[in-house]
Design a protein around this nucleic acid. Structure first.
Lengths: 148, 148
DNA sequence: ACCAAACGTTGGTGCTGCCAACGTTGGTTC
DNA sequence: GAACCAACGTTGGCAGCACCAACGTTTGGT
């Protein structure tokens, strides 16, 4: 937005700071990823597949914090781009097995560097130690509220 | 949502943690304020009025990070509830002068305790020192991206 | 006198997180 | 085997939020 002279009550409020921080983060990361034709959710799903291997759409959603109804279009888009393969699970015909393709793994490696650069822009005013500490504190809060 | 076993890439990403943290914060604070018939933006505007005195809608928006088009309905709601007085500025007839009423000041004091309790719930897993540090770090990041 | 800028207001847009419902399939219990 | 419940993918929709464009009005600067 462009905030000038915010009230002390807001400037000291964790919830307000988290909100404003998330706005800045989404703007920076969103635009940066859009510039290479990607999206934050793409990175999340590709990461989950890379770290845990093939999974159902529902499992992917649970890991990334994405609703399974939103996962449908997301997986379809990634599949259309050849970054992911989607086929019915022969062992459980309710599920789809989502697999990371070679192109998907290459794409993820490419996005890794992009994302790293964008994170740097986001936490630019912090030293390396401060960045680590911010991550630690945020992680404690986030995990306390439902994330494993 | 309810995240289980998030990928390491996400769990270490400031932007993702900010997002998830903001989600939890908005859920907690939003529900807590809704329970007393208030809203986050109400608290923001009342705070700005209390700390800086009467102001135009545009100035309020600039201080709270709220678009002036959204401020219209917001001020109207607060005015309807008698927490705020809205009258044309005789010195500059483009502006409205928004003033905090006595009821508004009382309401703000009431919301102060509610908000404080909700912040406690939000950063529950952190010690007092860690909470201060989180605020300091977040503030540096937020102010670096446009907030004063 | 003219022009640019700021104001309040209306209306609208896109994204996001979420919910409900459905038909299908799998597992559990009698 | 029958009956039941739970999970899956999918569709459609909803509410909140941040944001933008445009307008008529008013002000200040040149």
């Amino acid at each position: 937005m462009e905030i000038e002279n915010a009230p002390d009550r807001l400037r000291g409020l964790p919830s307000w700071l988290l909100n404003q921080g998330a706005l800045a983060a989404n703007r920076i990361v969103g635009e940066g990823l859009a510039a290479v034709g990607a999206h934050r959710s793409h990175f999340a799903v590709l990461s989950a597949l890379d770290e845990f291997g093939a999974a159902s759409q529902a499992a992917l959603g649970r890991r990334c914090g994405i609703d399974r109804s939103d996962m449908v279009a997301l997986v379809n888009a990634l599949s259309r781009d050849g970054l992911v393969a989607k086929r019915p699970d022969p062992a459980d015909r309710r599920r789809n097995v989502i697999t990371l393709t070679t192109a998907g793994r290459r794409r993820l490696r490419s996005l890794d560097t992009v994302v790293a650069r964008l994170q740097g822009a986001l936490v630019a005013p912090l030293s390396a130690a401060e960045r680590r500490q911010l991550v630690v504190l945020l992680r404690r809060v986030v995990e306390h509220h439902g994330a494993t």
